[in-house]
């Protein structure tokens, strides 16, 4: 074999492997989406039907009109969106302040705070489930979306700060110093110089918090007793009925829950990975 032929063969083998990885990753997602558009005779079959030839939107229709657990899926989507957006708005403000403190100032207790951030991320949410449930009940936030928002802020904040501080640190300090020399105040410098430069990082961090809150299951499961307050992850559980599972409907519901996350994810994936790893590695 000539070196050229061997190189070509290697390339083909590599591409084939890449394609295989792609299929392994994408097929389950594709299967979810395609099942939600298949007529029931193509869902409940022992045959493999790769593509919905009996294309139908009846499942999508059904989850929107009839819904599940007494409400349309729209209501659960709305609840999830309220919780996730509320978490992001509060969390982003808090994270930005704290991240600026860490990345721009040297002060006593800074290292301890960083170590604290690392350690609180190890605490499993399950460990906080019982006390937070009791506290939420005591504060009268049980069965209210606000209770979920507050808890999600707590769950996402440590990582939010951790991730955002690398973005703040990446903005050259000399830019702010130049603004100071030109006589800008601290606030002006923050809003006009630092903030616009950190904004992309803030968006990435916010999307990460959004996704975490959007996906959160356990707290939503125990803090909402009335079905009108369910979020999507809780509502999906109710499709698994006693009388067999309505797979078309549950796939339609899952698809609706998944789409916004996947879109957000692909938008910020590059920044998110650098934030996760650089944030953790570079300290």
């Amino acid at each position: 074999m000539t070196p050229f032929a061997r190189k070509r063969l290697t390339r083909i083998a590599l591409n084939a492997a890449g394609l295989l990885v792609f299929l392994f990753a994408v097929f389950p997602v594709y299967w979810m989406v395609s099942t939600s558009f298949k007529a029931n005779d193509q869902i409940f079959t022992t045959d493999f039907i790769p593509f919905p030839t009996h294309f139908t939107v009846e499942h999508v229709d059904r989850v929107l009109s009839e819904g599940v657990a007494g409400n349309s899926i729209w209501l659960y989507m709305r609840n999830s969106a309220i919780v996730a957006l509320g978490t992001v708005l509060i969390g982003a403000a808090l994270a930005l302040l704290a991240a600026t403190a860490i990345a721009r100032f040297t002060f006593r207790g800074r290292t301890s705070f960083l170590i604290l951030l690392l350690i609180v991320q190890m605490i499993p949410a399950e460990a906080l489930l019982i006390p937070l449930f009791l506290n939420v009940k005591r504060l009268g936030l049980y069965d209210q979306l606000l209770g979920l928002i507050v808890i999600n802020v707590g769950l996402t904040l440590p990582f939010g700060i951790w991730m955002l501080r690398t973005f703040v640190a990446a903005v050259p300090k000399s830019l702010e110093e130049a603004a100071w020399i030109d006589g800008a105040s601290r606030m002006t410098t923050f809003w006009r110089v630092l903030f616009p430069l950190v904004a992309p990082g803030l968006v990435a961090t916010s999307i990460f918090s959004f996704i975490t809150a959007w996906n959160e299951l356990i707290f939503a499961l125990i803090l909402m007793s009335d079905s009108s307050g369910y979020t999507m992850p809780v509502a999906l559980q109710f499709f698994f009925g006693q009388r067999g599972t309505d797979w078309g409907a549950i796939m339609a519901g899952s698809t609706m829950m998944t789409i916004p996350v996947v879109v957000f994810f692909l938008l910020v994936q590059r920044r998110m990975v650098s934030g996760l790893v650089a944030g953790a590695v570079k300290g």
Binding site: A25, V26, P28, V29, I211, W214, N215, L217, M232, P233, L236, Q237, S254, M257, T258, V261, V262, F264, F265, L266
Partner: peptide, 8 residues
């Protein structure tokens, strides 16, 4: 896109 799918 596989990573992005919500755990539920």
């Amino acid at each position: 896109s596989a990573w992005a799918v919500p755990p539920v």
